[in-house]
Design a protein around this nucleic acid. Structure first.
Length: 837
RNA sequence: GCGGGCGUGGCGGAACGGCAGACGCGCUGGACUUAGGAUCCAGUGGGUAACACCCGUGAAGGUUCAAAUCCUUUCGCCCGCACCA
């Protein structure tokens, strides 16, 4: 196989003696270096507040894992096109970058290789920053934010204290998600179908005392305000909606016959209350032990509870898992029908949702149905379909839709809807229940038993209890000298100089909290810090934050749909309520970019199908890398990496470059109407494709077509000169280095990126003569060039005189002729013999 | 199971209900060349000797003068949620 030859790294085997080829090849290595140095020297992308309309263009900042991967390159290329395009369109653009720098990989590197997490992290940052600079990204680097730096996490801690002060941070003991792989607890959002989102270990349940943020207080607003986010993909909105999981229903209190204890259940189907034939409690329900104490079933029930308690969340909640349950010897009295039903416990009832108790209605709930079938429990039909009437009445099948109430005493004949309303009213009047809204969203578990995170700024004092660290003592610094051995408790717990402290309240001896914060806290506010990264007086400057925020365009991966994107919304709402910000949503528009694949699979080290950005940039340079990635697919779609596709992008760049070389010292004479029209049509298309739908692939293809036309024209007209200038401008967002070099080579002053985006001549984009498609019965049979504004009658006449049309119409009667101005003519014709049917 | 999305050449992908396959890759041919793996030009959905004609957007129906696009059914793939009472 021949060696692929592209940049300066490999030499041409048949290097011509003095031939033109080497000079004609775009020397990306030196050109890109030259312009990157120039931009840096000129502080070209420094941003400050101005009178121009602001535009905050943000991409999700990376975790500094060591190297950029192609997903990053795609993400940041998309963002850079938007930022550069908006700048050229007169916006004051904030386009910052930083590092989500706390996190487990750094600590794992410390455990495995003995490198300090800080050293490892900062080395990775340096390398990835180098790579981003090589890509020519237009960031304002002075605003760089690093979440693991004390200047930053001081304010992360401050935000924790704000949460604490407002009652939104609290500590409680509960069954929490424990990841054995990461040796720490996790929030619900970080468990994906029973497994750790990061390391894929099966999550265990542990009873632990942990810090939480009361995100559930904001459930309703987080849900409701999704409707404000019209600029988000509906997919993401739906995911958040499902995650919040609002459901309206009632709580109804049953009474235990044997003891008189109340059992409250939550149900959304109180219209089926007369169909209750049993009651099911979660094994963890506090009444279980109480009701079985001293009974013959005590031991057996305890064993059952213990066994279910040991099951992982994955096994417990899988629909595949067999239902298990047992009768616990007590009965509940239905407060509406007065009926007695047996109380069971079962693995399918969760303590965390609702009240941990469920009324069993096997005829109208598929889970209760299966459970009843399995254990031979009775069923009673109390809802029939609106149309079904008798058939459904006695059948032994589950009917879960709403319908008409039957076997329900005074409620018989009501629709489910009316019945619900009446029953809700009844129980509220009688004081045996109330209307309730339940959410699936749980409070956010924010403490982590790991070192490499922001310390939770709290101390424990024997006399004062939990005491927040005073703001003026922030940051609570992470100690450097720590033993990294994963043990399940934070490494900080073993650093006595850290742990031992004085109580800010009474001055007595106290212990510091040794858990650190979930890194999702750090990333929940970084976009605010970018607006005023220099202040050491506050997390952010209020004027700056209200000037720049909200983010106009946010670009990142879909994987954060219910993690970072939900947490950030929560943070902003809290800050709004406390008067720190004037907006209630952080991200106005969201673009979720597709993954980068190779051979149809996600690139991963284990599969060995990685394409390293460094290799590609060395071979082709930044502009080619960017161009290919933007050209190969629209941003939301998956992108299939292709070596030959990248080669094609490289060819195009050279094709453009050769045009510049050819015409740079020409004298331009005359004009070309054709090129003029193509040029303006291209401006229109590229502008619309970028601004209206971010379809960079079609924008680039339009530029390619213009270049093809320029090659065909092949004449040094004045129009050609304009086209070359336009070409530099249109390419600027995509290939920033090439565009600068073209601009300079063509003899223009200043930076191409500081120019105004070109506008098009509206007259030039409408052709005088248009090609009409001529259809007969909907099939294209011919084409004809006619003046754009020709009258319909004359078009008709012209079309019917076409040779091919005449031939096709032989033996046919014309039924009608449809004229679509500027597009086509459709002649509807029928066989003559059939015309009278 | 529920919800959402997607099926178009050899490949990546284009097509306000109005000329299917733009652009690129690959392939074929030509030009320039000692040479071509550079570059330029041309061709390239299938059938066909054919710029004649026929057939073509997973499949089957339907609406329409006109359907890749809208509707119904169906098959296949992907994603999200999943015992949430």
């Amino acid at each position: 196989m021949p060696i692929l030859l592209a940049g300066g790294r490999f030499q041409h085997r048949y290097r011509p003696k003095g031939g033109p080829e080497m000079e004609e090849r775009f020397d990306f290595a030196s050109v890109e270096k030259k312009w990157q140095e120039k931009w840096e020297k000129d502080s070209a992308y420094r941003t400050c507040r101005t009178d121009a309309p602001k535009y905050y263009c943000l991409e999700m900042f990376p975790y500094p894992s060591g190297d950029l991967h192609m997903g990053h390159v795609r993400n940041y290329s998309i963002g850079d096109v938007i930022a550069r395009f908006k700048r050229m369109n007169g916006f004051n653009v904030l386009h910052p970058m930083g590092w989500d720098a706390f996190g487990l990989p750094a600590e794992n590197a410390a455990i495995k290789h003995g490198i300090h997490p800080a050293k490892w992290t900062y080395a990775n940052i340096a390398n990835m920053k180098r790579q981003l600079k090589l890509l020519g990204m237009s960031y304002d680097w002075t605003r760089e934010v690093t979440t693991c730096s004390p200047e930053y996490y001081k304010w992360t801690q401050w935000l924790f204290l704000l949460m604490y002060k407002t009652g939104l941070a609290y500590k409680k003991k509960s069954a929490v998600n424990w990841c054995p792989g990461c040796a720490t607890v996790l929030a619900n959002e970080q468990v994906e179908s029973g497994k750790c989102w990061r390391c894929k270990s099966v999550i265990e349940k542990r009873e632990l005392d942990q810090w939480f943020f009361k995100i559930t207080d904001y459930a309703e607003r987080l849900l409701r305000d999704l409707s404000l986010l019209e600029g988000w993909p509906s997919r993401v909105r739906v995911m958040q909606e499902n995650w919040i999981g609002r459901s309206e229903g009632v709580e109804i209190t049953f009474t235990v016959k044997e003891t008189g204890d109340p059992i409250t259940v939550f149900t959304t189907r109180h219209d089926t209350i007369f169909g209750v034939t049993f009651m099911v409690l979660a094994p963890e329900h506090p009444l279980v032990a109480r009701l079985t104490r001293g009974t013959p079933l005590e031991d057996e029930v305890a064993k059952f509870v213990e066994r279910v308690g040991k099951m992982s969340e994955l096994d417990r909640t899988s629909t595949e898992t067999e239902r298990e349950g047992m009768f616990i010897g007590a009965h509940a009295i239905n407060p509406i029908s007065g009926e007695e039903v047996p109380i069971w416990i079962a693995n399918y009832v969760l303590m965390e949702y609702g009240t941990g108790a469920v009324m069993g209605v096997p005829s109208h709930d598929s889970r209760d149905y299966e459970f009843a079938r399995q254990f031979g429990l009775p069923m009673r039909v109390v809802i029939i379909p609106h149309d079904g009437v008798k058939e459904a009445r006695e059948t032994d099948a589950v009917y879960v839709e709403p319908g008409i109430m039957v076997n329900s005493g005074e409620y018989d004949g009501l629709s489910s809807e009316e019945g619900k309303e009446r029953i809700a009213k009844f129980i509220e009047e009688k004081g045996i229940g109330k209307r309730t809204v339940n959410y699936r969203l749980r409070d956010w578990l924010v403490s982590r038993q790991r070192y490499w995170g922001a310390p939770i700024p709290v101390v424990y004092c024997d006399s004062c209890g939990i005491v927040p660290v005073p703001e003026e003592e922030l940051p609570v610094l992470l100690p450097d000298d720590v033993a990294f051995t994963p043990s399940g408790i934070s490494p900080l717990a073993e650093v006595s100089e850290f742990v031992k402290t004085k109580c800010p309240g009474c001055g007595g001896p106290a212990r510091r909290e040794t858990d650190t914060m979930d890194t999702f806290i750090c990333s929940s506010w970084y976009y605010l810090r970018y607006t005023s990264p220099f202040t050491d007086k506050a997390a952010f400057d209020r004027e700056d934050v209200n000037y720049w925020m909200p983010v106009d365009q946010y670009t990142g991966g879909i994987e954060h749909a219910v993690l970072h994107l939900l947490y950030s919304r929560f943070f902003v709402k809290v800050l709004y309520d406390q008067g720190y910000v004037k907006f209630i949503e952080p991200f106005t528009n969201l673009l979720t970019q597709g993954m980068v694949l190779r051979d149809g699979e996600v690139m991963s080290k284990s599969k060995g199908n990685i394409v390293a950005p460094d290799d590609i940039m060395k071979k082709y340079g930044a502009d080619t890398t960017r161009l290919f990635i933007l050209f190969a697919a629209p941003p939301e779609k998956e992108l299939e990496w292709s070596d030959s596709g990248a080669e094609g992008a490289w060819r195009f760049i050279n094709r453009v470059w050769r045009l510049a070389l050819k015409y740079k010292s020409q004298v331009f004479l005359g004009t070309s109407e054709r090129l003029y029209r193509v040029m303006h049509k291209t401006i229109k298309k590229v502008t619309e494709d970028i601004s209206e739908r971010f379809n960079f692939n079609t924008a680039i293809s339009a530029i390619m077509e213009m270049v093809n036309t320029m090659y065909q024209e092949d004449a040094p007209t004045e129009t050609m000169r304009q086209a070359l200038r336009t070409l530099s401008l249109l390419l600027a967002p995509f290939c920033p280095h090439l565009a600068e070099e073209l601009w300079e080579t063509l003899g223009y002053e200043g930076s191409v990126h500081a120019q105004e985006w070109p506008s098009y001549d509206p007259d030039a984009v409408v052709d005088e003569v248009v090609t009409l498609a001529v259809q007969i019965n909907g099939r294209v049979r011919d084409r004809v060039d006619l003046p754009r504004d020709m009258e319909e009658d004359r078009i008709r006449e012209a079309v019917l005189n076409l040779e091919r049309v005449k031939r096709q119409l032989e033996g046919k009667n014309i039924v009608k002729v449809v004229c679509v101005p500027g597009r086509l003519v459709n002649i509807v014709a029928r066989d003559a013999g059939l015309s009278d049917i």
